[in-house]
Design a protein around this nucleic acid. Structure first.
Lengths: 150, 150
DNA sequence: CTAATCGGGACCATTTAGGTCCTGTATCGG
DNA sequence: CCGATACAGGACCTAAATGGTCCCGATTAG
């Protein structure tokens, strides 16, 4: 269904959350304010930190902080951080797993498609998505604090 | 990993194959000439037929035939036929499965992204991919790695 | 030194996709 | 009219990827 992992969705939520809380925030705090189980959030944050989307400080009073403003983070980067490289088929450029030599040269040219998608994904920043979110959040606000995000 | 199903890849191969053999071809013939197990090819062809990408004739001397030229088939249509509607997240516009109301309004705005991808996918026809295949035979092996993905 | 917090891996359960098979229906040829 | 061929559609099983959890080592503030 051409879907991406739920973890990536979480990542977006987490990043937006971090952008709201300007300072540092522990994985526990983020998890609580976002409503996702802590271990999972921790996993997501680790992955994001590994790709520089967030910076981490260890030790007591440590935590995570946004690496750069949302407007400078493209979703493609988030996807790469969580789900790995963007490629629609397993049979990518230099891949060697191609057993059927007869069909790969015939029609297995997904590169233009991959490129098109990569481009599309690189042209949308998290800020764009957050903006869309704001426009939408006109409904009766719940009591929870996270709704103030908008 | 933002991958699409292998079945979709098969579908492209099958369609190109059908375009080569101008007349009708049975699922058995296609399977044999393409090197994919027959039942699987049959499944793919059924799905394609259901979406009008190929036309079928039943009975003896029946078989499948390309519904329209490759240049008029966008990959997006193939994907939809095989994998279903194109949406990156399960939480699409009108979906009701959203249990966590707190986070969806916050950042779950994937629509612009979905649209971007749909557009990109609609602008590439199977003929384009086949053409790329030809062009590729000329250039030296690419070294592009996934990491460059922006 | 102790508590807090990230880092990184191992691990298990569930879901999903891939693939196979079986039965029904339509059409052609004898 | 009857049988053979080939698609239609669904049920089913197996295997792999994903989501999610846990644990232990490393690091830093107090």
């Amino acid at each position: 269904m051409l879907r991406l992992s739920r973890l990536t969705d979480y990542a977006v939520v987490v990043l937006v959350r971090l952008s709201v809380a300007q300072g540092v925030a522990t994985s526990t705090e983020v998890a609580a304010s976002v409503g996702i189980p802590e271990p999972t959030v921790a996993k997501v944050l680790k992955a994001l930190a590994g790709h520089g989307l967030v910076t981490s400080t260890r030790g007591a009073h440590g935590g995570y902080r946004l690496g750069r403003p949302l407007s400078e983070i493209a979703i493609s980067q988030v996807i790469v951080a969580i789900d790995g490289p963007i490629a629609l088929t397993s049979c990518v450029d230099g891949a060697s797993g191609c057993d059927s030599l007869s069909l790969c040269p015939m029609a297995g040219r997904w590169d233009p498609v991959n490129d098109a998608i990569r481009t599309a994904l690189s042209n949308t920043s998290l800020a764009d998505m957050a903006a869309a979110s704001v426009r939408r959040a006109l409904r009766p606000p719940a009591t929870a604090s996270f709704n103030e995000v908008a």
